[in-house]
Computed example of a mutant assay.
Amino acid sequence: MSGTGQQPTVSPLTAEQFRATAAAIEREVGKVIVGQRELVRHTLITLLAGGNALLEGVPGLGKTMLIRTLAQVIDCTFSRIQFTPDLMPADIVGTNVIVEDESGQRTFRFEAGPIFANLVLADEINRATPKTQSALLEAMQEHSVTVAKTTRRLAEPFFVLATQNPLEMEGTYPLPEAQLDRFLLKLDVPFPSEDELVEIANRTTGAEEPRPEVVADGQAIVAMQELARAVPIAPHVTAYAARLLKATHPNDGNAPPMVRSYVRYGASPRGMQAMILAGKIIALLDGRYNVAFDDLRAAALPALRHRLILNFEAQAEGITTDEVIGEILREVLPGEQ
């Protein structure tokens, strides 16, 4: 699968094939990544939804290894961009360079940047300046980049996995709300348990390294993305997603007390879209071809946690967006108006 903008030919896929392929991907990734099943599942959900994910966790928890292994398993091109304060937009999207042919004539030739890959790891994205961060915006949203007034499509599937370190905040540039909103899900990377640490040591310090097998390709991923969007959702389930979203706004009549006390701005409509898309994939992974209320509730936390802006009172009292969303899920139940 190349990263030059060529789009794969898509063959129809059944729900059973979807589930079997997804299970095979998770199984092969699990050969390399110890534990972290929920993280692997949510990363796969984001990929199959055609979105992008933001991972937050301390260094050394396998974020780079996760996306690299995923690229190996689905036989797609992989690119890693290490964000630093001196990184420029052209270092990401590419630039035009002057080349001279045999006759001595000089012409411009486009040198593609690392964004031209199927799976892109944007490592420590909050270490780059806002100007460089914004270079990802068009690629993430439109799956294309524009250089010197020429727009170039990116190859499908296209998936950005950005990471940020929550500990070292000196010299960082926090992502603006508009850019955070473009990530389908925000995933927290938990620290491994003691048993998982032992298994990590056994796998990474021995003579043999685990080798995942290829179980899908770009064409299969695109077919899975199309099937996921075709999953039907009942009007009352969509209405519940809308109620969950509106409950994140402090001026809404159904907002829980915690939202009114600690939330400055609620989630945008993209939060509802993320819940529904993720809910459709969760349903398929569970062997169902319809979205249930529980699918939306399972997707609510990663879909909304980066879209709420808390006020100063919340920061002073140590209230997190996860706590606020948990309160919303307890207060706003299916079937209630």
Rank of each mutant, 00 (worst) to 15 (best):
I67H: 01
P89C: 13
Q105T: 15
L66M: 08
L66V: 06
F78Y: 15
V99N: 02
M88S: 03
L66F: 04
M88F: 09
A117K: 01
V93W: 02
D86A: 01
T84H: 05
T107F: 09
L70R: 08
F116Q: 03
S79T: 14
D86L: 03
I81T: 10
T69K: 13
S79R: 11
L87Q: 08
T95Q: 09
T64N: 07
E100K: 08
T107G: 13
I92F: 01
P85R: 06
D91V: 02
R106W: 12
N96V: 00
F83W: 13
I98H: 01
E111W: 00
Q105H: 12
A117M: 00
L70C: 10
V99Y: 00
S79I: 13
T77I: 03
D91L: 01
T77A: 10
Q72G: 15
G104L: 05
A117S: 08
N118Q: 12
G113N: 06
I74Q: 09
Q105F: 08
E100C: 08
D75T: 10
P89L: 10
F108H: 09
E102C: 00
N96P: 11
F83T: 14
I81G: 07
F116E: 04
L66N: 06
F83D: 14
L66H: 05
D75W: 08
T64L: 00
I92E: 05
N96F: 04
L87Y: 05
E102I: 00
F110C: 06
P114R: 01
D75M: 04
I74L: 11
R80M: 11
C76V: 15
M65E: 14
I98T: 09
I115E: 05
I74Y: 06
F110T: 03
N96W: 00
L66I: 03
A117R: 05
M88L: 13
T77E: 15
D91T: 02
T107E: 13
T64P: 02
Q72V: 14
P114H: 01
M88A: 09
I81R: 07
D91R: 02
A117Y: 04
G94P: 11
D86P: 06
F108I: 06
L70P: 12
E102Y: 00
F78S: 10
T69Y: 11
F78W: 09
I67P: 07
P114W: 01
R68N: 13
T64E: 07
V99Q: 02
L70M: 15
T95P: 09
P114E: 02
I67E: 07
R109G: 04
I67C: 02
P85A: 11
V73N: 15
R106V: 08
I92V: 15
V97P: 04
Q82R: 02
I74C: 11
D75V: 09
P89I: 10
A71R: 10
T84G: 10
L70A: 09
D75F: 13
D91N: 12
L87V: 10
L70W: 06
F110W: 12
V73L: 15
A117G: 06
C76T: 15
F83P: 13
F108P: 09
L66S: 12
N118H: 03
F83Q: 12
D101Y: 01
A112R: 14
P89R: 10
E111T: 07
V97E: 02
I115L: 09
R80C: 11
D86F: 02
T77G: 15
T84L: 11
F110R: 00
G113Q: 06
M88C: 03
V97L: 07
A90N: 07
L119N: 05
I115R: 06
V73Y: 15
G113S: 08
